[in-house]
Computed example of a mutant assay.
Amino acid sequence: MSEKPVVTIEYCSMCNWLMRSAWMAQELLSTFSHELGAVTLKPGTGGIFEIRIDGALVWERKRNGGFPGPKELKQLVRDVIDPERDLGHVDRVKAPKAAD
Rank of each mutant, 00 (worst) to 15 (best):
Y11E: 11
W17T: 05
R20K: 13
T31C: 11
S21G: 03
L41E: 08
T8M: 09
G46F: 02
Q26E: 13
G46S: 10
W23Y: 13
M19D: 15
T45C: 04
Y11H: 01
K42W: 01
N16C: 15
W23L: 13
Y11S: 07
W17D: 06
L28E: 07
N16L: 14
T40V: 14
C12P: 05
L29Q: 08
E27Q: 09
M19C: 15
R20S: 12
I9V: 13
N16W: 10
S21Q: 10
Y11M: 07
E27C: 00
S33G: 00
Q26L: 11
L18S: 12
T45F: 09
L41C: 11
L28I: 06
R20H: 09
W17C: 03
H34G: 07
E35L: 02
S30E: 15
Q26K: 11
F32R: 02
T45R: 12
F32C: 01
T45P: 05
T8L: 14
C15S: 12
M24D: 02
L36T: 04
T31M: 10
Y11D: 00
A22Y: 03
S30L: 09
S21C: 10
L41S: 04
V7E: 04
M24A: 13
E27R: 01
S30P: 00
Y11F: 15
G46L: 09
G37I: 00
G44N: 12
K42T: 14
H34E: 10
L36C: 07
W23Q: 12
S13M: 14
I9T: 09
M19N: 11
M19I: 15
H34W: 09
L36W: 10
E27V: 05
W23A: 13
M19E: 15
N16E: 15
S13I: 13
L28S: 08
M24K: 10
A38L: 05
T31Y: 02
A38M: 07
K42F: 05
S13C: 12
S13H: 13
E27T: 08
N16G: 09
A22T: 13
L29G: 08
W23I: 13
T8V: 14
C12G: 02
V39S: 05
W17K: 08
E35A: 00
E27W: 03
R20E: 07
M19P: 11
T31W: 01
G46Y: 05
G37V: 03
G44V: 06
T40S: 05
F32G: 08
W17G: 04
G44K: 02
S33T: 08
A22E: 09
M19R: 14
G44M: 07
E10V: 15
